[in-house]
């Protein structure tokens, strides 16, 4: 464990807490893409299958349970909670995310470390996480103005993988047999997808203005 990875995990946790806060405090999920939340639930379920087979550390296991439980709770809330689900932007959240799932599954079958069930699913979860934010970014552009909590949620979500890139660089230089190009390439793609969001987020922060994404 190194500081970059720890900061990355904490940033990821903060993004989830902000989203839970937004939904709980405002009893609304307007501006949040249910499809992105469903993709994240799938990412965690596919990646953390080793939760019961490989024990790495208490921290690792606890965080896996937290990520799986929170992502499922958010999906449940947006689908079933009688108050929250009314504020879901169903007509704006129209990204065909099933194509993302199919494409990532196909890629994982072609490119993975070892052609085993767990490795294919792990690669699938890495590829899917890289593109899971797309429905959310599309929804933000369509819904025009972005409320503060939603903007902060997306910002922290983007920042977490950027910390992981620093972690991979650090591990590359400090550990001998460290080769994890699948995560690195996907992580770079994932962070790059946030580039324009980060730019507009920075502009709105500098001008102290409302975050506006160009349509």
């Amino acid at each position: 464990m190194n500081i970059f990875r720890f900061l990355g995990d904490m940033t990821h946790l903060i993004s989830i807490l902000i989203l839970l806060l937004k939904i709980y405090a405002t009893k609304s999920c307007s501006g949040i893409s249910l499809k992105t939340q469903e993709l994240y639930a799938l990412v965690f379920l596919a990646r953390y299958l080793d939760l019961f087979t490989d024990f790495i550390s208490v921290y690792n296991s606890v965080m896996k349970v937290v990520f799986i439980a929170s992502s499922l709770a958010i999906v449940w809330c947006m689908r079933r909670h009688r108050v929250v689900r009314r504020s879901y932007d169903k007509e704006l959240d129209t990204f065909r995310h099933y194509f993302l799932v199919a494409a990532c599954l196909a890629l994982a079958l072609l490119v993975q470390e070892k052609f085993t069930f767990l490795e294919v699913l792990w690669a699938f979860s890495i590829y899917l996480e890289a593109v899971a934010i797309l429905p959310q970014l599309v929804l933000l552009q369509r819904s025009g103005n972005v409320d503060n909590l939603t903007g902060q949620y997306v910002f922290f979500l983007g920042a977490y993988r950027a910390f992981y890139i620093l972690n991979w660089i650090y591990r590359y230089f400090t550990e001998t047999h460290f080769s994890r190009w699948i995560s690195c390439v996907s992580g770079l793609v994932q962070t790059a997808l946030y580039a324009d969001f980060f730019y507009y987020y920075f502009i709105s922060w500098k001008n102290n203005s409302k975050l506006q994404l160009p349509a």
């Binding site: 990875r5 995990d9 990821h12 080793d50 490989d54 790495i56 690792n60 965080m63 896996k64 990520f67 470390e113 792990w122 992981y164 972690n167 591990r171 550990e175 047999h177 460290f178 994890r180 699948i182 995560s183």
Partner: peptide, 10 residues
Amino acid sequence: TGTSAVKDEL
């Protein structure tokens, strides 16, 4: 160990 380095990350 069975888990390669890459799987010790979240």
